[in-house]
Design a binder for these strands. Structure first.
Lengths: 148, 148
DNA sequence: AAGTATCATCAGGTTTCCTGTCAATGACTG
DNA sequence: CAGTCATTGACAGGAAACCTGATGATACTT
């Protein structure tokens, strides 16, 4: 009886996870005195690019449940880093916006974050880095559940 | 005064995190009735490749603190999926080994995990997949603290 | 022999996730 | 236009995975 074919080491699944943990570890150091956690900071950076999202959109985008995102959003709101305002066109939606304070926090760490990102791909050629970026997004897209 | 140069969207940092969350979400489904969590399962797969590690090595490899790893290891031990036995050559080390039960659990999910992994890179050419794998490991290595 | 680093573990705490449930709103359909 | 269904945001409750800080025992270094 044939055993399963050998799989490369380490598995891709684990390779992604351990890189994510490595990044988290570095961001934790960077944000140690900032008053926000790494997931909170990450949510802020998403909002920076897509101001006016709803928490539900953000949750889907990040692959977490709406409840998990509500925890994050709530913490950011309490710290006045974002504000929630009702969508005039859709009464049940709350749109999320960065506050000046939130923008200031992002600015304060933008340089260090950029350096971290550059360092992460410092061993790759520009072409390889490009493929890396593409692959990360493509793999994420592939794993998304189908939405009509 | 010049503002910071524009950064690609989404940031690499976020791209890694959201892919990791996507994978976690799929593994959660896969493991729903198995009695182990995704992080626990992941630790088991590492042990599968490197039987006889210590918890401290595993923690460094995974970029978490020894205490965080002790939580995971303790849960796996209580479920008899691994066993800890003292290293004869070093009395303060406890070596970790998969039990038959642990191996059985891995076998039970090996196929589904392999499919998930294949699906994840199904949009990439073999060359791209190779670059992807290399980049993940290289980036992780780059972020590791220097160790003598 | 003394000092330093590493291993495992205890204690205590926070955050991030989850499942389940709910009312209100909007969209679709017969 | 009434009925159904999906979606949004929220509440309650709970589990897991992380963290910092500290401790005793063992190994390594000088």
């Amino acid at each position: 009886m044939a055993s399963a074919p050998p799989r490369p080491t380490p598995s891709l699944l684990y390779a992604v996870k351990r890189l994510e943990l490595a990044i988290k570890s570095r961001l934790d150091e960077m944000l140690r005195d900032s008053g926000v956690t790494t997931p909170q900071y990450t949510a802020l950076t998403v909002l920076q690019h897509k101001d006016g999202m709803t928490a539900a959109q953000l949750a889907r985008d990040s692959f977490v449940t709406p409840q998990a995102m509500a925890d994050l959003i709530g913490a950011l709101d309490r710290r006045h880093l974002i504000r929630r305002s009702p969508n005039p066109a859709n009464k049940r939606e709350l749109l999320l916006y960065l506050t000046d304070e939130g923008r200031a926090l992002l600015d304060a760490h933008a340089e260090a974050a950029a350096e971290l990102e550059d360092r992460m791909i410092s061993g790759l050629s520009p072409d390889q880095a490009d493929t890396f970026r593409t692959a990360l997004t493509l793999a994420w897209t592939t794993l998304r559940p189908a939405r009509k």
